[in-house]
Structure formats: C-alpha cells, structure tokens
Design a protein around this nucleic acid. Structure first.
Lengths: 193, 193
DNA sequence: ACAAAATTAGAACAATTGTTCTAATTTTGT
DNA sequence: ACAAAATTAGAACAATTGTTCTAATTTTGT
C-alpha cells in the first residue's frame, strides 16, 4: 500500500469516526504518522481526498450490482443480497451517507455523479420489478407512477437509513444490520406476492 | 422584534441559504448590520443560536400537531394536513434537516430532545392508526411489529426527504411540495383501505 | 554508479474564525 | 433627571487550518 492509498484509508477511518466537520488534514497526516506537507503533496486539496473516496464507493457499488446480475436469484434472495450488500457499503462509507448533502454542495462533481447513478439505478429497479412481476413474485397491479414513487422511497430509505439510525442513538453496532434489514423488508412487504 | 430575535431570523435565513458549514457568526452579524461583538453579547456561543432555532422548530411542530387533534378529520384529510404541515416546517428549517446528524453530534442536547420527540410521536402514530383501523380507513391486518416498521419508514422519509430532494437537484422550488406529497402518498398507499 | 525524479519533513504563510475586552452609547426604572 | 443596567461597535486575541515553500532524503531508470 503506497502513501496515497494509506492517506485514503486513514482519512476514511477518521471521517467515519469523528465526522467530516472536525477532521483536518493535519489530523489525517498525524493519524498515519506522516507530515501535513507530505499529505498535501499527494492530495493538493482536501476535496481531492473526498472525491477519491467517493470514487471508491462507486466502484464498490458497481461491483456489487454486477455480482447480483450473475446469480439470477429468486426475489427474496435478491432482496437479502441487496440489503446485506448495501449495508456493507453504508457501513464502510458512513461519513459520505451522513454528510451527503453537505458534500454535494461542497464538491459539485460528486452531486452530478450521484444523479447519474440514481437515474441508471431507477431504470434498473423498474425493469427488475417488471421481470419479477412476470415470474409472479412481485405485484402486477402497480401503475408505473406508483412504481417510480416506490423506487424513490427505497432510495431515500437506503441512502438515509444510517443518518436516522445514527441520530436515534445507534451506538449498538451489533443490531444495526438487523435494524436495516427490517426497515427495508417492511418497505418491500406490501409489494411482494 | 428585538436584536435577539433578529439574530435568529438572520441566522436561519443564512443557514438555509448557504449551509451550516460555511456560515460564520461574523457573516450573520454582517447580514443584519450589527457587529460580531454585539452578536456574541446576545449569544455567547454559536451552538446557542442553533439550539434556539431547534427549540423554535419543536414549538412549531407541537403547535401543528395540536391543530390536528382539534379537527377530528377523515384519514385522507389528516394525511393531507400532515403532509402540507410537515412540508412547511421542513422548508422553514431546511438546514436542520439537511445537517441533522452533524448538529446532533455537535450539540448533544438536540439529539436527546429529538429522541424524546420520536418516541412520543411513534406512540401517537400507532394509536392513530388503530383508531382509523376501527373506522375502516386503515388496514386492520397489520401486525404490530410491521406497524412499528411502517412508522419508522415514515419518519425516515419525512425527516430526510428534503436531503434527498436537495441532492437530486431540487432547484425548482415550485414542484417541491408536489414531490413531497407524492412520496408520502406512495408510502401510505398500501396501508389504506 | 549516478543523474533525474519522486517523496518527505518541517517551517512558514495567509486567511479565517469564534470569542473576549474596552469604551462608548442607549435604555430603563425610579 | 439621573444612576444603574443593557446594548453596541470595533479592536484585539488566540487558536486553527489549508496550503505552500525549501531543503533534505529516497527511489528509479539506465
């Protein structure tokens, strides 16, 4: 692992632990035992660090989705894989989820990139629901407008579940996954057959 | 309106417009044409300003809920009033919703106060659903565990809808309310009879 | 082996920020 | 009317922060 990667690792861990507001580049450098000057040799601006981490999140996400496509699962299994997979990402990149609006306002490129992703995801989800509707695992009587609303619902919940959990006092790491699973399950429940 | 109130008004407007990250007490003072020294005479710490604004949000919320209780509405009407009422609050106190996790980490008293509110709200919602279930307007076959999950869902969506909307590029203020209405409606739809 | 390029530490800079201090001015209660 | 209290402006402080600069050291390619 070269210095650049080490910086990313240390920054991610610190941001997740202390929050984006209070962590400074000096702190990140200190955490990993290098000088602040050295850190800024590798990443001229703090934004560059965050942008790089966001890129990593996106690559991790794409990798996950690709894995699903290969497997050709039953809807309930897919749901489980989606839940557990997205939970892993949320947990790994906590601080991005928690400070998402702020980050997007700060680094516009991230906002744009996210909007692209959401548009692609929306279509994927809808065609997936259609597919499972034909297999009789998903309700067929949902009009397209409502389907889109449902997808929106899923996005809000999966993107901001952690924010809610953190604020409600999610100290106990142990049942966080279980909490997330249940929240997603309840959301899907009325749409399954 | 005395200086203290003016500070709160200016701070709210600035935080909503520019975000909590970039706004300084100097800026707030400048916005309203007083000195920074004077501002800190009224609010010793920046936290005090934010805490006061949060108190205002809570009072506004309680006032809204009280209004509902008086009216004794049909479920669909109540839903509409809830949607429009909570939208007004979200819009008025944008920055709190958008920076909620950060604020709670920064000012623990706000987090605690919110957790209290959520607990009270949860019970209110559930007994309300029971009430409307008896009137035949809400599904009766929902087990209590799922009902709690549904309430959780509503909280996540109403508390973080604006974050999602802002990130997705909610420049167009005009159809923001309509977007919020639809999102809430879709969430409730499967539970109405 | 050695020159060029890459990396590193640490000092230094410049701007910012929350807050305090001081002295003046205004308001309030009697 | 006047003393005490409240309010205000502006300078000043102290700490922080992202970033740059310089000189030394290490690595790399040939």
């Amino acid at each position: 692992m070269n210095t650049k990667e080490k910086i990313i690792t240390a920054a991610l861990s610190l941001y997740n632990r202390e929050g984006i507001r209070t962590v400074t580049t000096r702190q990140i450098a200190q955490e990993m035992g290098i000088s602040a000057g050295n850190l800024h040799y590798h990443f001229k601006h703090t934004e560059d660090i965050i942008y790089t981490i966001f890129g990593q999140l996106q690559r991790d996400y794409d990798e996950m989705v690709l894995l699903f496509d290969k497997k050709d699962l039953v809807l309930r299994e897919l749901l489980r894989e989606f839940t557990d997979g997205s939970y892993r990402l949320i947990n790994k990149y906590k601080f991005i989820f928690v400070n998402f609006v702020e980050i997007c306002a700060w680094i516009p490129a991230i906002g744009e990139s996210y909007r692209d992703l959401v548009m692609r995801r929306e279509e994927q989800f809808i065609s997936l629901f259609r597919h499972y509707a034909q297999l009789g695992m998903f309700r067929q009587d949902i009009p397209i407008a409502m389907l889109k609303g449902f997808v929106r619902q899923i996005f809000i919940i999966s993107d901001f579940w952690y924010s809610s959990f953190a604020v409600l006092g999610g100290q106990c790491q142990s049942d966080a996954l279980e909490d997330y699973r249940q929240t997603i399950e309840v959301t899907f429940y009325p749409y399954l057959t």
